[in-house]
Design a protein around this nucleic acid. Structure first.
Length: 301
DNA sequence: CACTTGACCTGTCCGC
DNA sequence: TGCGGACAGGTCAAGT
C-alpha cells in the first residue's frame, strides 16, 4: 500500500538511477495499466530523456525532456509520466547486467526475474536498463501528460497540502481538513483532497502518536490536538522514509527491497492483540470509514 | 452539499 | 485437500 513515504523512497531511488536516461521503448502488457497509451504515444516519449523525478502526494512524476529533432509537433513539449501505484503497484529498476536474464539481481530482492506475471508496463532505456511497472491487482496506472497542462489533471489539482511541507502550519492543516466537518478524523486523514499522501497505515500510526481516537469527529478536535496531530503525522512519515517505507504485503522499493517501518516503529498497525507500547493494553482492530483501523482504546481518547 | 458505501482486481488466509 | 468467502486498502462513482 504505497503511501507518501513509500512513494518518496521509490522517488529517491529512481532519481538516482533514471536521471538522464533516454527512453527507447515502452511496452504495455496490460492496457488498463496505461489507459491513455495508444499507437501515437511512443512518438511523444521515444528518445525522451528523464529529467527530474518528483512526487505529489502518492503520485510519482517522471519529467521527460523530448528529443530535440522531431517531426511530431506535440513531442516538442516536455511531458510528465505520472504513476499511481494504488494498492499493489511496484516500480522496479533493473540495469542491463542485473535484469534477471544476464546476471541475476540483488539476492535479497523480494522480486524475482522480470518481467513476471504481474508486469504491466516495461520501459526500456537506451543503455539497456529497464523500468518495470508491476501491479498484481491492476488498480495502479500510468499516464502521460504535457507538463504545461498538468494543472488540468483533476486528481493532481484536487490534492490537499503536502504534510512534510515545512511551511504548512497546524492552522493550515486544520483549515484544509475542515475544522467543522462532522466526518471522522480518520476518514479526513485518508481524504487526499484534505491532506495529501496519508493512507491507512500512517493514519492509524499518526492518530496513535497524537493520542486521538480515530472515531472522533473532525469538529471535536481541539487546536492542541490538531497541533499534536501534525507533529505526529510528520514524525511518522519521516521515520518511515528513513526506514525505507512500510511493507505490509506487496510494497518494495525500486530495487525490490522491503521497507522496515512496520517491523521497527509501528505502534498499532498490524499489531492487533499485541501490547500498546505505551500502556500495555492490547491493540484492538475496528472498522472506521470502511477501513481496518488499529488503536489503543486506553491511550487514544 | 456532505458524507458513506460499493466497485474495481487478485492473492492470501481462515474455517469447514 | 478443496472450496467458498472474508479481507487487504486507494480512489472514484453511485447512493443516502
Amino acid at each position: 500500500m504505497p503511501e507518501l513515504p513509500e512513494v518518496e523512497v521509490i522517488r529517491r531511488g529512481l532519481a538516482g538511477v533514471l536521471t538522464d536516461k533516454v527512453i527507447i521503448e515502452v511496452t504495455v502488457l496490460e492496457q488498463r495499466s496505461f489507459p491513455g497509451f495508444n499507437a501515437r504515444t511512443p512518438g511523444f516519449i521515444w528518445g525522451a530523456r528523464v529529467d527530474q523525478v518528483k512526487r505529489r502526494g502518492k503520485m510519482l512524476m517522471i519529467e521527460l525532456i523530448p528529443r530535440v529533432k522531431t517531426r511530431v509537433a506535440a513531442s516538442v513539449y516536455p511531458h510528465v509520466l505520472m504513476v499511481h501505484l494504488r494498492m499493489t503497484g511496484q516500480l522496479i529498476y533493473r540495469s542491463e547486467d542485473n535484469d534477471g536474464f544476464a546476471g541475476g539481481f540483488a539476492s535479497d530482492s523480494l522480486v524475482g526475474s522480470l518481467p513476471d506475471k504481474s508486469t504491466r508496463v516495461i520501459i526500456d532505456f537506451i543503455d539497456g536498463s529497464k523500468l518495470f511497472f508491476n501491479d498484481q491487482r491492476k488498480f495502479g496506472y500510468m499516464k502521460l501528460m504535457r507538463q504545461d497542462l498538468l494543472d488540468q489533471d483533476s486528481f493532481l489539482s484536487s490534492l490537499g497540502p503536502e504534510p512534510l511541507d515545512e511551511t504548512l502550519s497546524w492552522q493550515d492543516l486544520r483549515k484544509s481538513i475542515g475544522r467543522t466537518s462532522t466526518t471522522s478524523i480518520k476518514a479526513a486523514l485518508l481524504d487526499q483532497k484534505r491532506v495529501a499522501g496519508i493512507g491507512n497505515i500512517y493514519a492509524d500510526e499518526s492518530l496513535f502518536r497524537a493520542k486521538v481516537d480515530p472515531r472522533r469527529s473532525v469538529a471535536s478536535l481541539s487546536p492542541v490536538e490538531f497541533r499534536r496531530l501534525l507533529v505526529a503525522i510528520r514524525a511518522c512519515l519521516r521515520q518511515s522514509i528513513a526506514d525505507g517505507g512500510s511493507t505490509a504485503r506487496n510494497y518494495v522499493n525500486s530495487e525490490g527491497l522491503k521497507g522496515e517501518f512496520l517491523d521497527l516503529h509501528a505502534a498499532v498497525y498490524g499489531r492487533t492483540g499485541l501490547p500498546c507500547p505505551h500502556c500495555g493494553t492490547p491493540i484492538t482492530k475496528i472498522r472506521v470509514a470502511g477501513r481496518g483501523t488499529h488503536l489503543c482504546e486506553k491511550c487514544q481518547v
